[in-house]
Design a protein around this nucleic acid. Structure first.
Lengths: 144, 144
DNA sequence: CCCTTTAGTTGTCATTTGATAACAAAAACA
DNA sequence: TGTTTTTGTTATCAAATGACAACTAAAGGG
């Protein structure tokens, strides 16, 4: 019972996560990437290799628009497309060296702010935090 | 040591949260609200009453643009502005009855999908989940 | 009282993003 | 083989969003 209670917490929690991550990754994208383009690069970084359709699905954008944005990212030299030899309609998209460099630069900045945020936590608290992250990712925020 | 390990988990976790919440609240906004407008209404719902400056800060948008969007929301009858008698430059912004109705409709839909997602969890697991949400919100995703 | 700061408004323009139609090529299938 | 489905592309138009300048009004501070 009282699932509603849990739901309230879920809402408050996700709102907080969005707010904090927005704040923490604000201004990280110094380069000439639009917000959408940055999100795509981030997605590729985490899930590579991906296909255009996967990006389209996961990011909720139409194939034409996905294709357009990816073309721009390729033009900027941030990602590489390799035609799948098994199915030549598909392209495996990965980050190029420049793309990886960009993301590790970005992650570096984010890491610093993350460290500041958890600076006060004891070793024990960090372990608890890690367990909590694992648990939630497994039970609630699993990718279906 | 191994804070880097924790950071990796943080990145993976926030990516998952974004993906899942995007997915779960996709198509929820049936009305004539743009994505940005929906986010603003959601923010007001959670934090009301708020001022224009607060929205501007938290959502990372300029005052002129915030003002413009809020004017549209007011025109749609979704929110109310009350001039603060103590400082007549400020406005306390809250949701109108229509705004509340819209949000509770939206939250209702989200709740259904959330329930589906956690349907398999036992009572014990739900308690653990709740504790994990509390812990993370307190230690990591606190609003500074 | 003047000066500065804070809070918000209005208008305008450029860029980004979303939506749709029409297309091509490879694969799957009957 | 011919047809359909999947995967992606190109082009075009409309709408949403971002950026900036110029402005008003209230508050605060000397």
């Amino acid at each position: 019972m009282d699932n509603n209670h849990l739901f309230q917490k879920f809402i408050a929690f996700t709102a907080a996560v969005h707010q904090i991550t927005n704040d923490i990754s604000k201004d990280v994208n110094s380069d000439g990437l639009t917000p959408l383009q940055y999100k795509i690069v981030e997605y590729i970084a985490v899930s590579q290799p991906v296909t255009l359709s996967e990006i389209s699905d996961c990011m909720n954008m139409s194939m034409p628009n996905t294709s357009r944005e990816l073309k721009k990212l390729s033009a900027k030299g941030l990602c590489t497309r390799i035609t799948d030899p098994a199915d030549r309609r598909k392209q495996g998209i990965t980050l190029s060296a420049a793309g990886e460099a960009l993301m590790s630069e970005a992650f570096g900045q984010i890491a610093v702010r993350f460290e500041q945020r958890i600076a006060a936590l004891s070793a024990e608290e960090r372990k608890e935090t890690e367990r909590a992250l694992d648990l939630l990712q497994q039970k609630v925020f699993y990718l279906s």
